Amino acid sequence: MTSTLQAPVGRDPRPAWRRGVGPATVAAAAAAAVALVGTVDPNQAGHYPTCPFLAVTGLYCPGCGSLRMVHALAHGDPATMVARNPLGVVALVVLAATWLRWTRRAVTGGVRTRVAPAWLIWTALGVVVAFWVLRNVPATAWLAP
């Protein structure tokens, strides 16, 4: 007996309020996280734990500076956001666009018909690894948080 997976066709039959629960929950959680980091300053020692990778190796990871970037976001300071973690700013834009597509699909009742192609996932991984290396090279020290 073989089973085949078929691509979803048509519309999501759930009521509109039920389809919107996921995007609304993610938006509420993101807003709460930004509010918390905006209130509790990560620039002051003792509020958040140190990056484990930085503590062990002395090198910056791709996420180093992200809390300070989100703090700058909460205070409407785009220049500081880019200075703290430029790749994080790009990731925020991509996440926001993805969330908007998800919300539109939920509101209209559409179903997800495609996934990210493998080349895109591998490219994203390559960009993260390149950023990780470059922010620890003295010649590109401007990428460090």
Rank of each mutant, 00 (worst) to 15 (best):
G20S: 13
P52D: 01
W132Y: 07
D41G: 00
A106D: 06
F131D: 03
G126I: 06
H47V: 01
W122E: 11
W102R: 12
F53Q: 03
V40M: 00
V128Y: 04
C61I: 10
R14I: 03
P145E: 01
T25W: 11
V94F: 10
L54N: 12
A30L: 12
T80A: 15
G46W: 00
Q44Y: 11
W142P: 08
C61L: 09
R112D: 07
T50Y: 09
L125C: 14
W122M: 13
R104C: 10
S66A: 15
L95R: 07
T4D: 15
A7I: 13
P15C: 02
S3G: 15
T123A: 15
P8C: 01
L143N: 05
V89L: 13
V37N: 01
A124F: 14
A32S: 10
L59Y: 13
V37S: 00
P145R: 05
S66V: 11
V90K: 06
A45C: 07
W17A: 13
L73C: 09
C51Q: 01
R105C: 04
V94A: 11
P23M: 04
P78E: 14
R11C: 05
R84V: 06
P117H: 08
W17N: 11
R114V: 11
M1Q: 14
G76A: 15
A141W: 07
R135Y: 03
F53E: 02
V26L: 15
L36D: 01
A124G: 14
L36V: 07
W122R: 14
L143C: 05
V82D: 08
V93W: 06
G126R: 02
T57H: 07
L67S: 02
R112Q: 11
A27Q: 06
L143M: 03
W122I: 13
G126V: 07
L92F: 03
R84H: 14
R105Y: 03
A31F: 04
V37M: 00
G109M: 00
R104G: 15
L125K: 08
L92S: 04
T80C: 10
A28E: 04
T4L: 13
Y48I: 00
A29K: 02
A74N: 08
P62Y: 10
